[in-house]
Design a protein around this nucleic acid. Structure first.
Lengths: 252, 252
DNA sequence: TCGGCCCGATAACCTAGATCAACGCGCACC
DNA sequence: GGTGCGCGTTGATCTAGGTTATCGGGCCGA
């Protein structure tokens, strides 16, 4: 029953024999889904789900009703990695009939126990990178040139701000127009036009290797900016119980 | 000296005290780079590099000379995660003057020792997902509608083929045109045009929930398809010498 | 049996953004 | 002091792909 799961993880570099054994002792529950059904909703934690049969897509619905699909999952794929250390930022939907196996119970708990380990931190770092990539895909796939640019500027500023590297409404941004173009999938000429528009509209200015935010609210709205997309992927809720956390309510 | 590194990893969820100590015992070498210099070339292994000062971009040069930037790195970012378990698929270039600290030596070796652990496998799985996302960003940012579609079809077929799920030139693909559109950032109408073109040119056909590849070579060329982008991120070179796994026959 | 409704298929038209071309400025280098 | 050259700036033109609208078939439920 767990053969597929172990084989799947094994693809990524052979597991130690001990780990393999512990995994094979885990309980797997199996679920099936029809085409179009949501296998895993966005905004949830999730342990370890393996697509055993069928095809599924990872996708996000945007605020304007548009949708961006980030990838197609094939059998053997772990489809809820994003939910391991935080709530998922995308949902998984069955393309055709699917079978999904879920690993849960205490055994898994053990395997994930060392949340404080070096590898766990690296994992979270990679998850953070992947999430930023998804934001990039949304920009490239579904946002206008102005919105992409605004989103990028918000990211640049917000990240440096949270590090204490921004003074007032300014931060470093030593990029030439060609760099911005290549980040946003646009041409240099068009970037220049967008930049001028942002300046004329009093939203933001790029000059002398710096970025100045003139109107954060309007810029963030234009770029549909979500700081979550760049926050380190950690969910306080599951951190090892250092102190008895005051039970914060949680609605489904 | 290691304060920043530890703080950086700590952002992703507090490290255990022991790990923190071991990290603080590691030797860090520091390098500085000028604007425009390549901090980390593509195609290399890399251990753990931390951007300590300045801004840098992660980018790939495409075969046609175009470039796609995947993200901007700010101080505190680990910039070579992709090189941990395999060779990097992108390069890192300094936007402005940068300082980079590198962790090497045997100490780190120890922290990464348990390559066979569950978390290591999860790490690699996430790295694989991130890499697939980068391929998506290249498609969305720098490839024509036809090329994107071809690339997606190659992915769909190739992945199922390697799993033994494709028979001859056919594989499952129960997607409607709207799904393809939302994966590629295009409109349904245009997807339909592209699909017809691919069919008329004898490259590939989508019908009845299946995908049929008519001319793999031309399709792969059109889509600039790189199987590497979807292979599990493992570099045989560094796998711990386990006993030869009971390899069940598996043809490519 | 008759609607809805989803999906594929086309056609007509429109626009965001690309491409091409030209110019100016600052600056390193000879 | 010239002379490239990288970069920003701008205008003119072109086109890939979006938008809107319409039609037909398959399917399902009343």
């Amino acid at each position: 029953m767990n053969r597929l799961l172990i084989a799947s993880l094994d693809r990524f570099g052979p597991l130690r024999e001990g780990v393999r054994e512990r995994l094979s002792e885990c309980v797997l529950t199996s679920e099936t889904f029809e085409a179009g059904q949501v296998i895993l909703p966005a905004g949830e934690r999730s342990r370890l789900r393996l697509l055993a049969r069928g095809l599924a897509v990872k996708q996000t619905m945007l605020s304007d009703g548009a949708r961006q699909i980030f990838g197609v999952a094939t059998p053997g794929d772990l489809i809820d990695l994003a939910g391991l250390f935080a709530v998922t930022d995308y949902e998984v939907r069955a393309l055709g009939p699917c079978e999904v196996r879920r690993l849960d119970g205490r055994e898994l708990q053990g395997l994930l126990q060392d949340q404080g380990s070096f590898l766990a931190a690296v994992c979270r770092a990679v998850l953070t990178e992947a999430r930023a990539h998804r934001n990039g895909m949304i920009s490239l796939g579904r946002r206008s040139a102005a919105a992409r640019t605004a989103n990028l500027f918000c990211e640049i500023y917000w990240r440096q701000k949270t590090l204490g590297l921004a003074k007032d409404d300014r931060c470093a941004f030593p990029a030439v127009q060609g760099d911005i173009a290549d980040a946003l999938g646009l041409s240099v000429v068009h970037i220049h036009r967008v930049l001028r528009a942002l300046r004329d509209d009093g939203l933001a200015v790029v000059k002398n290797g710096g970025l100045q935010i003139l109107d954060w609210d309007r810029l963030a709205a234009l770029g549909d900016f979500d700081p979550q997309a760049f926050r380190p992927q950690t969910d306080p809720e599951v951190e090892p119980p250092v102190k008895p956390a005051p039970s914060r309510g949680r609605r489904s």
